[in-house]
Structures are given as structure tokens and as C-alpha cells.
Design a protein around this nucleic acid. Structure first.
Lengths: 375, 375
DNA sequence: AAATGGGCGTCAAAATATTGACTGCCTAAA
DNA sequence: TTTAGGCAGTCAATATTTTGACGCCCATTT
């Protein structure tokens, strides 16, 4: 909604790469994040990005990096929660050859690697307490020492940290150092959960579909309803996963509400290694005996939730009606239009309970030829 | 569809209704038009809107009116080209009772009607030469006389004119008065043809579908390609007509490229009065004898361009593959998913030449669980 | 008025599709 | 090693769909 003038000319000193191009969505929250990024990009003060997991904290960090003055330098990311506790120190600061068991060769730490650039400390809330101490010292002295070395190396690294944890609580529980917190959170950016900015869901879906790049997919109106009203506990990442599944499962299809539901019901066997472990459970639980010979056909759609025959019938019906309308009720021509024999068309009409006059209920008279359109 | 801001508060003197809300599209051209409108809205100088027919000149005029200081006054439109030449004077200036044959009663002209408001003179280029003289005099004197009256009435009307003609040429051919032109075109706004701002096509399509309001429609990727690359000689109006047809003919459907083509091939019988005049031509030309027994199925799609059976087969195939992928290649479960008997599913697979392993060619390993996504 | 031509609905034969039964394979449990 | 159970592939019986032929109706032309 915001209107930004195009600066085609010369200047543009500051934002070499406008972050609006990298964040998706037009919600007030995202616009706010955008302007925070623009502001922070002009500085090197430490930025703390908070928000539930999967809401795109790395994306924001990278956008910030890319429109900062360090855009041409390295962006290095470290997931402080994912790296085993005793490797984290080496990961961050590096080590000299032989400084501990397994230290076969010298190794440059991420701080050094990101020198002049940006270091992104993800899940900082999960950093072990003793590492927090070391990190704080480094930040204060602006220099590091590799493990096993006594030589200090000056660093000039912009720190962006992120966490999904409530650090206030972590501090009060003494799991996180308050002084470190204040040093990292000089400029806080909070990203709300996806469910609190539902306007962004549709743009994100479009973005993901385009980004994945394979065959396109389309969602029916009801399907979009479901997607926009889901709680998205996994936020944008979960949405991406769902869209990836959808593109894989339903390429070049119009995805119905039922099918969207089936996307959420994730398959029992998640790990591809085992193949049979979860399958029996699926079957034992579900119906199995199922006495045959229901006299009619419309059994209440089974496990999957959708029904090929029903779908094909609906599709056929829509086409029959379209053709009949195009032919203005002339069955012979309608049949011709969809490459059917007239008699076949008639039979199908009977099966679908379609009557010729249903094609003629056109409320509009003709095309608008006048020039002033009153409403 | 029309949006009128609630002026609950006090201020908001200038743009009570931002035109961005009424113009669709983000092309540079439209952005330019928007800022021109914003500028002109603050004044009462005459505005001349030029551009090919159907490109939305009335829309622009209304947007301008609605965000001008006269937004609360009347907006009156007159199509100078559509009104018979001898009625135009009366239409614009009104007449006294009995002033000419047929003047049964007194009539207020559009100039008076639009007093304090905005008068939109559409297709001004088609205005008869002698009317141009009279119009010029009115503009210069800022007062009118009803036909058959000698009383002058002061008017305070903002004039917006529009034409699809090249007025320079009309002037050089002495079909249009140069002095009138200069009086009307103080502030010119030119709207480019739709084909010169193709970025606007997709937003317009979305806008029209929403505006029409009925059941939604969807376009396949190739269908959108066609729509975006068509020349649109009728500009936005033609696009609207096409979308109206599409919504009517293909409600809640995903519209294929073939179907889009059929939207353009407008029906031979446009006038509903005759019904049989054009049909014979369509039939005599097309194939009729067509010796049966082509050994295979793929006969070259007939008249209409699309083929229900083929479509249903494609649809079926997509569903079979989806189900098979969801079931990770387990036919029995795939069948279950789409509510088919296993044997039926197998038969369909054979017909479609689908093999079980086609479901297993999944390039991605699993979901991304790490947190830093490199690209 | 009769003839022509196109369209509509119906029907029974012909073409297709669906289904349950049967067989064999494989794996996991006994 | 045997057994049990799930699954895939095939086939003939059954069910459904498609199709050409026929008769009727209406409007226009001769």
C-alpha cells in the first residue's frame, strides 16, 4: 500500500539493495520491519531479531545485511543451538592445530571469517552459559583469540542475533546473561507470528510457488480460505513446506479444499529409511473389514478425503455447462465444442440432470457498448 | 465496489479519497498517472485525458474528481460522440419549454447540473465544429444560456475532457478548433495502451474477477501467457469483457490456454435476434464426413478447440500420480486415497502408462529441519 | 403445400470400464 | 522353516457408457 518513489537517478548512497525486494508481504508488521531494517542498515549497532521459529528471522537478517554498507562483505550464519556445545567455541573462534583432541589442522572461526561483514548468531538463546561469557568478552574487547593461541586478532564484525525464546524469562531463570542481552539487543526487531499477519499468507504463497519454480499450482477459493485461516504454528517455514509438498503432489492442478486438508495430514512415515514401520499402524487403525456390496456407489469418501470419480463428475459437469452456455443452449453445437457426439452429450446431460434452458439464464443482456459506465 | 472514505474526523482537506485506491496496476505509466491526478486534484484547471479507447479514461476522470476538492459535488459525464449532433447543445446547456420542436418541457443542461462539480466531456474530439464554438464561448465567459432563453447563468464547473483521437491531427485537418484545444488541454494526462503496460494486465484481471463478484476463475500458466501477450486493441474494456465472458462460461474452473483462445473467438451470432444465420457457415466449413475408425484416439480437436475426454483423462492422470506419490508408490493405498478399488486403479494406471516407480522419483530428500537456509 | 435441413430425444447394439476372484511374491513373525 | 498377511498383476463376468439409427418437430425455402 505504501508508495515508494523510484529513484532512477544517481544518488542512493545508503541502501544498495532495497530490502523491500527481499521481504514478502504488505502487512503493517512487515512494513514496520522494512523500515526498521532501513534504519538499522545505516548503522553497525547490534541487532536482535526475535520471533517464533520459522517466521523468517534469517531472511530478515540477510535482508539487513544486504542493504547495509557491508553488503559486499561476507554474511556468516551460526546456529548456536544446533552446534554441539563443545564444538561451538571452536566454531566461533577457530583453533590452532593440535590445540585439542581432534584438532588436526588449524581452523578459522566464524568471527574471523565474517570480519568486515556480518555474523548472524541464530538461536542465541540456546547458547551455553559459559559460551555466553566468552562471547561477551569478545564483544567488549572487539578481538578474539583462537583456541590454543595467545595471539589476539582484532575483529570488525557486525553482529545480528536472533532467537525464538523469551530472553527476559531466560534471564530471570539465569539461563541467559543479562549483560550479554543488553549488548546484543541494542536494536531489537520483532517479527510477529504468521497467524497475526494473515494478509501476508497469500503473497507468501505466490512467492514460494514462484521460488520453487517447478510446475505451477492453483488453489480454489475454499482452499485459500483454509490456508489463510490455519494457525501456522510453524510460521513461514511450515507454509513453505506445505507449498513444497503441494507442488510435488499436485503439479499444474487446481487444489481443492479437501486436498489442502490432505496436505496437512502429513504422512505417517516421515523417515524414508524405514519403509514398513508406520504402515501397519495406518492400516490397523483404519477400517479394514468393510463388508462389500454397499448397494449404491456413494460411499462416504474414504481415508484420503477426496474422490476421483466425484471430481471427474464435477469437472465434466462444469464443462458441459460451459459448452452449453457457449452454444447458447444448442446441444448439437455444445457437443461439437467439447468434441463429443451429440448423443453422448445428451446422455451426459441426463446423468447430470442438466437441462438446456440452464444455459440460457444469462442475467446480462449483452456486452457493454456505451462509454459511460454509471456504476 | 465503489469505496467512499468515511470522513468522520475533521481535517483531510486535500485528497479525501486517494486515487491509488481506484486505479489498478503498478506499472510506471499508472504510477505516473496517479501522481498527475494527485497534482491536478489540488487545482481546478482543465484536464485533458488522452489515450486509446477502452483504456479507462472515465475511470481516471472519476478518480480525479473523487480526490479533488469537489469530491462531494456532482460528477456528470457526457459522451459528445454518442449524442446525436442536434441534441448535444440541449444536452449541455438545457432549453426552455417550447424553444424548439419537441422541447415539451424545460430542461436543465449538464453544465448547470454539474455546477460546483465536475463535467466530463468524453470523446470531445467527436464534437461537431459549431458546438466547439459554443463551448469555447461558454468556457471563456463562464456562463451559459439555455436554448431559447436570453438569461445568462453563471457556472462554476470543472472541465475534464477526454478523447481517443489525435487532436493535433484533427486540428490540422480543421476538424477541431485550436483555441478550444488549448483551453481544454491545460493539464494533459495521457494513458498508454494496455499493450504498452503489460504488467498491469494481471492486476486488472484480479481486479475484474473480484469486481464481477460471481464465482471465481483461475487461469493456467499458459492461459495467463496468452492473456498477457495479446495485443488488447480494445484495452481494459476488452479485457473486462473477456473476463466477464470467462466468469460466465467457466465458473470456478481452471481455464486452459485453449479455453482462453475460445474466449477470443467471439460467437458468430452476436445479436440474439437471429439464431440461424451464422451457424451454417460454422458447420459447413468444419469437418463432417470424418471416416470413423481412426485406430487410435487422438483425433485433432474439433471446432471448439478443446476436448472434454482429453481433459478428463489429463485430470485423471494428474490425480493418479498425486495419489501414487502421496502413497509413496503403494498402489493399494493410492487407490484408497482417491476412493477407487485397487484393481480399478491398476487398470487406470495401465491405460495411462503410469508405473509405480514414477511416484518415487522424488528429488528432495525430506523436509528442511536445519535453520540456516543457504539460498 | 411439399420438400429440405437442422435439431431433439430415445433405443438397442457395441465398446469400455469396473470389479471380485485367483495366483504368486515378499516380509515379518512364529 | 513355516505361516500369515499385505500387495501386485491378471482375467473373465458384470456394469456403464458411447454410438449410429430412427422418428418426430419446427422453420425456411421452393
Amino acid at each position: 500500500m505504501e508508495y515508494r518513489p523510484k529513484v532512477t537517478g544517481s544518488e542512493r548512497i545508503l541502501h544498495p539493495d532495497d530490502p523491500a525486494l527481499h521481504l514478502v508481504g504488505d502487512s503493517a508488521a512487515i512494513e514496520e520491519v522494512r523500515s526498521l531494517i532501513r534504519y538499522a542498515a545505516a548503522t553497525t549497532i547490534p541487532v536482535m531479531i526475535t520471533g517464533p521459529s520459522g517466521c523468517g528471522k534469517e531472511v530478515v537478517a540477510k535482508a539487513l545485511h544486504r542493504c547495509s554498507l557491508r553488503a559486499d562483505e561476507k554474511f556468516v550464519g551460526v546456529n548456536c543451538g544446533a552446534i554441539p556445545r563443545d564444538l561451538l567455541e571452536s566454531e566461533l573462534f577457530g583453533h590452532e592445530k593440535g590445540s585439542f583432541t581432534g584438532a588436526i589442522a588449524q581452523r578459522i572461526g566464524q568471527f574471523e571469517d565474517a570480519s568486515k561483514g556480518t555474523l548472524f548468531l541464530d538461536e542465541i538463546g540456546d547458547m551455553p552459559f559459559d559460551m555466553q561469557v566468552k562471547l561477551l568478552r569478545v564483544l567488549e574487547e572487539k578481538q578474539i583469540e583462537r583456541i590454543g593461541s595467545t595471539q589476539s586478532i582484532a575483529i570488525d564484525t557486525r553482529i545480528i542475533s536472533a532467537t525464538h525464546q523469551n530472553l527476559d524469562q531466560a534471564i530471570s531463570e539465569h539461563r541467559f546473561r543479562e549483560d550479554l542481552f543488553y549488548r546484543l539487543s541494542v536494536f531489537p526487531i520483532d517479527i510477529p507470528a504468521l497467524k497475526d499477519r494473515r494478509e501476508d499468507i497469500a503473497p507468501l504463497i505466490r512467492h514460494f510457488i514462484a521460488k520453487i519454480g517447478g510446475e505451477a499450482i492453483y488453489f480454489s477459493a475454499e482452499a485459500m480460505d483454509i490456508l489463510e485461516n490455519y494457525a501456522w504454528p510453524g510460521n513461514a517455514r511450515e507454509l513453505l513446506n506445505i507449498i513444497e509438498r503441494a507442488v510435488l503432489l499436485f503439479p499444474e492442478m487446481m487444489i481443492s479444499a479437501d486436498q489442502v486438508s490432505s496436505l496437512f495430514r502429513r504422512r505417517a512415515s516421515n523417515a524414508p529409511s524405514y519403509q514398513a514401520d508406520a504402515l501397519p499402524a495406518r492400516f490397523s487403525g483404519a477400517g479394514e473389514v468393510r463388508p462389500f456390496k454397499h448397494d449404491s456407489d456413494h460411499r462416504g469418501s474414504l481415508g484420503g478425503g477426496f474422490d476421483l470419480k466425484k471430481h471427474l463428475m464435477q469437472e465434466e459437469r462444469k464443462y458441459l455447462l460451459s459448452a452449453l452456455r457457449m452454444a447458447e443452449g444448442v446441444v448439437a453445437e455444445a457437443a461439437h465444442l467439447v468434441s463429443l457426439r451429440r448423443t453422448t452429450f445428451v446422455e451426459k446431460m441426463r446423468r447430470h440432470k442438466i437441462e438446456r434452458r440452464m444455459a440460457l439464464t444469462d442475467p446480462r443482456s449483452g456486452m457493454v457498448t456505451g462509454s459511460i459506465r454509471s456504476e
